[in-house]
Simulated scan of single mutants.
Amino acid sequence: MPDGATTGQRSANQRWAEPGSAHDRLVKWTKIVLPSAVGVLVAILAVAPLDKKGDVSFILDKKKVQSAPERMRVEQARYTGTDDKGQQFTMTAGRAVQRSSDTPLVDINGMFATLNLAQGPLLIAANQGRYNLDTQQVAVNGAIKVAGADGWRLQTRDVTVDLKQRQLASHGPAQGAMRLGQFRANQIHADLGTHTVVLDGGARLKIVQGAVR
């Protein structure tokens, strides 16, 4: 009897391991189902923290926060406001860095401002400057270009632009160009709303013939 039982068990195991047997089908099914189940589990774990009902916690190292070199840095920053006449202005910056929350000064790179005027939008572009969030003034270091919808142009450098009062002024010698011609002076002041430029001290103006007709 033991030999017969052993032989029968051996025959059953052989049939179980044969290709196309139930065991073979179970192995193939497992190869398909288990990876799918793992994928579903990973997806659930990945989405779970985004569930509004779930809570996500983290630990913030206080020492590392205190040693951060800058308070806030924003890429593609956008600032909006209104001037003294209630007209909207918008200023965007490729990069804006506020060194400390104690000061309203923001270092900006790639400045582009738009002032909405009655005669059309006025565009202001500069490479870098410092924006005062309280006074809404931009101290531009380097070149600045101003262009109006009616063809008015102004190019100069090292000035302060008051977006709220729509004024531009230099704190030292400045030179530039506009439709009338090239200019140079110890100081300049421009009213961006009326498109007028005042040259103060050592004024030099080279008028382009036929520029104004």
Rank of each mutant, 00 (worst) to 15 (best):
A77P: 03
P69A: 01
Q88C: 01
D102N: 10
E70L: 08
K85M: 11
S67P: 02
Q98W: 00
D84W: 03
V106Q: 00
R95A: 05
L105I: 13
G94P: 02
K64W: 06
G94H: 02
L105W: 08
L105D: 14
A68I: 02
M91P: 00
D102M: 08
V97E: 05
A113M: 12
V65W: 04
M111K: 05
M111G: 15
T92I: 11
D102Y: 04
D107C: 05
T103Q: 10
G94A: 02
A93V: 08
Y79I: 14
R73C: 04
T82Q: 13
Q87K: 13
F89P: 01
M72V: 12
Q88H: 12
R71V: 03
T82M: 07
R95N: 09
A93F: 09
K63I: 09
D107R: 11
A96G: 01
D107P: 04
V65F: 07
Q76H: 12
G81D: 01
G94M: 03
A96W: 00
R78G: 02
Q98G: 00
I108W: 02
G94F: 04
Q87F: 08
Q88R: 15
N109C: 04
M111E: 13
S101V: 08
T114D: 08
T92G: 01
G81N: 07
I108E: 11
K62F: 02
A77W: 14
E75R: 09
S100Y: 06
T80R: 10
T90R: 13
F112M: 13
F112K: 15
V65H: 03
K64F: 07
S100M: 05
R73F: 03
F89D: 03
P104W: 09
S67H: 05
T80L: 10
K64P: 03
A77D: 06
D83L: 05
M111N: 05
T103F: 06
E75D: 10
Y79E: 11
K63L: 08
E70S: 13
R73H: 07
D102G: 09
Q98E: 00
Q98M: 07
T90Y: 09
T82A: 10
V74R: 07
M72A: 11
K62M: 05
E75Y: 07
D84G: 01
R73E: 12
K63T: 14
G86I: 01
S101W: 07
E70V: 13
R95V: 10
K62S: 07
F89Q: 03
A93T: 08
V97K: 09
T92C: 01
S100R: 12
Q98K: 03
R71P: 00
Q66M: 09
T82G: 03
Q66V: 07
T90F: 10
R71H: 15
R78M: 10
R73N: 06
L105E: 14
R71C: 08
N109Y: 12
T90K: 13
G86F: 03
Q98H: 01
T114L: 12
R99C: 00
V74M: 11
D84M: 07
K85D: 14
Q88F: 08
E75Q: 11
Y79A: 09
V74W: 05
K85E: 14
M91F: 09
D107E: 15
K62P: 15
D83I: 04
A68W: 04
G110S: 11
